[in-house]
């Protein structure tokens, strides 16, 4: 038995796309650093992070296609959907900015991602549990790395501190979208497949308080919150990202090798 409660496959597949699209889009964004990072070791680290996230995205989107039951593969979902069909949060589609901004985004996302995956240990669907358990090991590693670097750079030179604080000020307004509950989240929670995102927030808040105290950084007040990605309302940045990510399948439909 794979599912404890009957759930509408369309809703389930859409939720899986939210999780998978976060991984695929952030993975693609980070891969843009390949060959451009400030030092070789970080270049390699970013490429490896991208690889893990794209691998996870492939598993989530593969399951989304299976649940949806229309014969779409992970590749079909990644390469043949247009902007409005993507369900990732806005945070992960933002341009990389400088290295500090890329790292801060990674930390803000990793600290949420690890809580989500941990909570999916209890998911009432074995396929979701299996992917989450696999991804959790990789994300624990990402999370420890981004924590290290946020502390080192936040508590580093005046220049590194200023850049990390600037990145935090810029990105923080995009974080509340990770914890907003909507109707789909409620459906998933009722089916006991996924937690309500708002329940992940206290642990995330504790992590941030702990790490920012070590890093000497201050999270800004959330006066204005940016959201929409979870429902397909994206920033202009996603289209440019997809133009590059999907180019080959758009220019040469069905190309294989």
């Amino acid at each position: 038995m794979t599912s404890s409660t009957a759930i509408d496959p369309t809703a389930f597949a859409e939720w899986l796309q939210r999780v998978g699209d976060n991984a695929i889009i952030l993975g693609h964004r980070i891969s843009e650093w390949c060959g451009h990072a400030p030092v070789l070791e970080e270049d390699i680290a970013l490429a490896n992070l991208a690889l893990d996230l794209i691998g996870q995205g492939q598993l989530w989107l593969g399951l989304a296609g299976e649940v949806e039951g229309k014969g779409r593969s992970a590749d079909d979902l990644a390469y043949l959907r247009d902007c409005a069909a993507f369900r990732n949060i806005l945070l992960v589609e933002l341009p990389n900015g400088d290295f500090g901004q890329t790292l801060m985004r990674q930390f803000l996302f990793d600290s949420f991602h690890i809580e989500l995956l941990r909570s999916l240990r209890e998911a009432g669907d074995s396929r979701v549990r299996d992917i989450a358990a696999k991804a959790e090991k990789e994300v624990a590693y990402h999370f420890e790395r981004s924590t290290d670097l946020v502390i080192r750079l936040g508590d580093g030179t005046a220049e590194s501190h200023a850049r990390m604080q600037r990145a935090l000020d810029k990105l923080f307004r995009y974080t509340s979208e990770m914890f907003v509950d909507d109707k789909l989240d409620e459906t998933m929670a009722e089916a006991k497949i996924a937690p309500l995102p708002s329940t992940l927030r206290p642990a995330w808040d504790r992590t941030l308080a702990h790490v920012f105290a070590q890093a000497g950084l201050t999270a800004p007040d959330e006066a204005w919150r940016q959201k929409g990605g979870k429902n397909g309302v994206h920033s202009e940045h996603l289209g440019h990202l997809l133009a590059e990510m999907q180019f080959l399948q758009r220019a040469y439909p069905g190309a294989r090798w």
Binding site: R118, A140, E144, T147, I151, T207, V211, Q214
Partner: peptide
């Protein structure tokens, strides 16, 4: 020595 994502341990290690 596997990563656990337990931040308090990590900071102790740092």
């Amino acid at each position: 020595t596997a990563a656990t994502g337990q931040i308090a341990n990590r900071i102790a290690r740092l």
